[in-house]
Design a protein around this nucleic acid. Sequence first.
RNA 1: CGGGGUGUAGCUCAGCCAGGUUUAGAGCGCUUGGUUUGGGACCAAGAGGUCGACAGUUCGAAUCUGUCCACCCCGACCA
Length: 565
Amino acid sequence: MRFTHLFGKTLRQAPAEAETPNHQLLLRARLITQLTAGVYSYLPLGWRALLKIRQIIREEMDAAGGQEVMLPGLQPVELWEESGRRKAFGETLFVLKDRRDRELALGPTHEEVVVDLFKRLVQSYRELPIMIFQMQTKFRDEPRPRGGLMRTREFTMMDLYSFDADYEGLDVSYDKMLVAYKNSFDRCGVPTIKVLADPGTIGGADNNEFMHLTDVGEDQVLICPHCDYAANTEKASFRKRTAEAEAPLPMQEVATPGQKPIDDLVAFLGVPPWKTLKAVFYAHDRAPVFVAVRGDLEVNETKLRNALGGGELRLMDDRAVEAAGLVPGAASPTGLRGVRVVADDSVVDSPNLVGGANTPDVHHLNLNYGRDWQAEIVADIALARDGDPCPNCDTPLQMRRAIEMGHVFKLGTVYSDKLGATYLDAEGKARPVVMGCYGIGVERLLATVIEANHDEKGIIWPASVAPYQVHLVALNIEDAAVREAAEKLYDDLRAAGVDVLYDDREESPGVKFNDADLLGMPLRVTVSRRTLEKQSVELKGRREKESSLVPLADAVSTIAGRAPS
RNA sequence: CGGGGUGUAGCUCAGCCAGGUUUAGAGCGCUUGGUUUGGGACCAAGAGGUCGACAGUUCGAAUCUGUCCACCCCGACCA
């Protein structure tokens, strides 16, 4: 490709809307351009990289036994009602009406459609296992698109679905996918770790996320530096400080004027935080819920929502708490009526806690679970934080930010049951098919490739996904000898099967070198008067500091040898 | 949806508070000519803007007021 023909030129300054390095470089190198919030166009260089990424994923899915298909983006909304996920997705689901006033959804994902497909095509256990995948545009009306390609409303997902006769088969399929995912990210030059995760609206049991650790990630993970424990904060558990065994003491009232936040109360009464009961109020599907955790802990809203069986969860402010007839700052679970109570398992196991008395400026001493109050639900709803002890080995966990590259789920029979997807086993009995689903955000992966491979000058493409392998720079191109040599090299390299971007512009050397660094092709080849005097061309790897000269006669073979096609 | 912020040329921004020499500016980019040429050159001449939209206040609005829209950031959701 000649630079003078390339659609779009580079930007010296990054547009103000971009904050992260990957977003700035995507825009400056003209890989993408934004149409509207969370919707992007992919320009020639960006699209070429994306095609490379897609091909890598395709090869890995094929190698794992996947078969590629293409499923519709337009889906009848009835399918979503049948699976119960129309409500689960809520406003995130794009819904439109056809001319007959029937509702159609723009698919945010494809479990429903793929199960429908399974029902139409598969009858017997003899046909199992099956893995099918596709790369299709997904539409999600995200509450807040952000971070360039990190969270968009229209994006490509590679989604693979596995169908097995039983759970043992699912385990096999799942393990194959773990390998295929790791390989895909590795080949794209993105280091990842596998963490435990929350399944969210997808449902199902076991699931893992592939995370790329970086400060610009929107997720947080907790990693044990000692054992192999790693989990998304949404999911992470930790070893809670165990309460010392004590005989329950009689409950007592104590005046605590003006002591509302737990920190103040702790200082005022001189008790440690883990000897107190902290009350937090949430509106769950609009109904108030009393949430009790020990004073040294915080509530994990994802765990809480799961304990409540899903639904909408919101923190209540003091006014809403008062409106519900409760006392913010001195609330007590004792004698509550008409309010659901959810307790973290830590408070159940801790004797003689200090808690509110449902009277302003009064607290109770020696609250004991079972004797003084009860919870409707007891579960682990505590948020793991940086430094909390690893649940496996007690080592302090480390909190890191990360980008979620992929998410794999053991769905089991959640969808098969809801949508009636069965097969006949060897005895001729109908059984629900056991499913898994596995997704990679393709454009997000592109962004992460850049995030993981750049310096202050620009992108440093891994050869595997570089739009072009060679960036041929002709300096002083108005010099006929230079132009002639550069043109010939360009033609010869292409004839040798090398993807080359040829800077044939009449620009100063600085401009050309800076653009070469910004665009980040793996190998830079420079032709100039200076190199021609020595009958040679100059080669420099994007990651290398030093360049080297190669005789003109050997240029094509040397370059072709260094540049995988 | 709650909180914060920004809309002036392709990109980055000044001008707005104290309305009137602003026929609206700068740098970069773009066009033409010339001089340069191994790390974002220089000179000269140009092109390019309904100052986000609408309504209002005023003799007069980029500037003041109101409404709306768009985009960005922080939170609730996810690949």
